[in-house]
Design a protein around this nucleic acid. Sequence first.
RNA 1: GCGCCCGUAGCUCAGCUGGAUAGAGCGACUGACUACGAAUCAGUAGGUCGGGAGUUCGAAUCUCUCCGGGCGCACCA
Length: 713
Amino acid sequence: MVLELQKRLGDAIRAVLNEKYGLADETVPIETPPGLRFGEIATPVALQLARKLRKAPKVIAQEIVAALGSVEGFTGFEVAGAGYINARLERAAAVRMVVSHPFAGEIGERMEHPAAAKVGHSNFQVSESRPGAPADHALVEHTSINPNKAAHIGHLRNAILGDTFVRLLRAAGQKVDVQNYIDNTGVQVADVVVGFLHVEGKTLAQVRELVAACERRAATEGHKAAIDYSCWDLYARTSQWYSEGSEEEQAARKKLRYETLHAIEHGGNETAEVAELISTAVLKRHLETMLRLGIEYDFLPRESEILHLKFWEAAFEQLKKTGVLYFEEQGKNKGCWVMTRPGGGDAAGTARHAGTAGPETGATTSGPDEEAKVIVRSNGTVTYVGKDIAYHLWKFGLLGRDFGYKPFFRYSDRECWISTTGGEADHPHFGGATAIYNVIDARQADPQANVIQALRGMGHTAEADHYTHFSYEMVALTPRCAVELGYTVAEEDLSRPYIEVSGRKGFGVKADDLIDKLIAATRAEVDARQTARSEAERQKIAEQIAIGALRYFMLKYTRNSVIAFDFKDALSFEGETGPYIQYAVVRIRNIFRKGETTPEAVLAEFAKAASQRVSELASQLSGEENEDIWALWLRAGRFSLVLDQCIGASEPAYLAKHAFQLAQEFNNFYHKHHILTEEDAGRKTFLLATAAVVLRELVKALALLGIESPEAM
RNA sequence: GCGCCCGUAGCUCAGCUGGAUAGAGCGACUGACUACGAAUCAGUAGGUCGGGAGUUCGAAUCUCUCCGGGCGCACCA
């Protein structure tokens, strides 16, 4: 509702500016005033035009208001302060808009509350041709945990951010493929393989037996017995092992490490088979962990297939042909195929390599570019960035090759596919997206920029423009938390604000451990409150609250703020938390339960009354004593605006904030107005309708955040 | 050395892309359960928005410069 009216006002003012001052395409900033006494929507447009028009802002504002006349949905405009134009909404009309504009269809289908799903399928459109609006087929890549150890809290932030963003895009009507990239042939997997084969001295058969045994034990004893947990420790031990012993021993171990890595990359040997066993088993565990949070994937592209299906070879040809890569003949990168870096590329450099000159004559004019990024080493092997370029060409459907596909993991209603060399003949199509979002932490900004640079250099500018590095800062531990967990913290680290999590050192909080801890805490609380409910019911509620707390915790921070993790904050269920919002939902449901009616019945009745008795509704929304109720409706009507901002800024935290504020204003309302004892029938319906709309909006917002709305708590 | 991010209340963070009186949560202190559940609400205290300069009618927000903190800058993956 608010978004629509903002656009309407903006259009009306633009028309005035065009007509009255001959200003075409002037941007009209629209904002929300600091308080309702300034109206509901405001614009400082007159202030910004003051210089251009050489007039006092106040005068301009008055002229605009006079020329505006009346605009549908608004009762009037006034000039305030230095030259603001404040607009006042026709409140009754706005309320009716909120009631009748409930959901984008897809969101409705995802609601678990039947009332919410049925309320309405209007032709509600969220993002209409906004400039820079995301394209129709998006590909979001997130999670991407090396399959050699258990997931930790840093991975949780990645997955929760990514999953939430997927929900937001889908709510806005986009087709989205969700990918989880698996680096199953990297050093991290190699290290665990070295651990099994050389530190522990196991054979392939023994590893196979161990993986099977872990699976059996995990089924009865829980995930602490699972393979990803044992790998967590083994990985840390192996990392330690490399730096132990005499110099000769260390050198031999390093050598072993790279031989193992190369054997895995090459494939078709026992070492590669061990790697395959481990990485597949650990990957399954990751998918299970993420499923606990409601996170699912469509496709799991693996590094092994990128290698075996020769993605790089195809990309290399294109990169050479377009002049993005050139062969360096002198300097420190002699014998390598290199690419000009995004930052360091001066105009001359770009022209030199991307232009007419072939690779042979490339590096002659001004000496070797020492800052260039090596893509193919002098020994002929390709670097990580090179493989990443190939993979991203595939994502945009520009590579001319495809993966093989086979089903890998079964969700309740569908299959998650994985890459393979052969694969099924009949499979869904992935890749060929028009916009991609890579959820990768901020430390990888440079490599990401390199890939974008390559795309741009190859002439794929549209693709480069729709390549978003969805960057976020890491989750670190507070020194106190690290000590609490029993890690030895160096003296100088104790005074630091946070300490980085490290899988290599086995230093961090495992995802499943945290989830377990949260469930245990919520379970204790639920057991104390819900004595009449069954064991299974209480467990379900506890899980919903625990996941709500965790997801909200990871989403309330904006992306580029480092989260200094602390159990005290993460295990909090009061104040700005997921459970706070869930509690507001439960309260509203209780009102309807006790009042023996339903939100949809109330809204239907209210909608009818509102269209018949407009003046009554108007009076219920006016006056000092009703300001808070009007504010609540106004907040409820902001959803599409917030969704728009979330997608535009790739920032799910805005929606988290919105949900919290709505719940907060509702709680205030709840204490002030006692609904069920209200004697005036019309007033009671109005109050119930207010609660119903807030319920609908809260459930919707929570669902987009991946948080369930419990029936009780 | 170069690049990116951060610095806002005791603590953890917002601040709608330059606007009106800088806001929340936690913690502290006061109050509110015989009414729809107190995982709640109302209130009080707490800020030279790291320092300085500049641009502007107007700066927490943009520019420059210091100070403090973090992270990247390999023919590793």
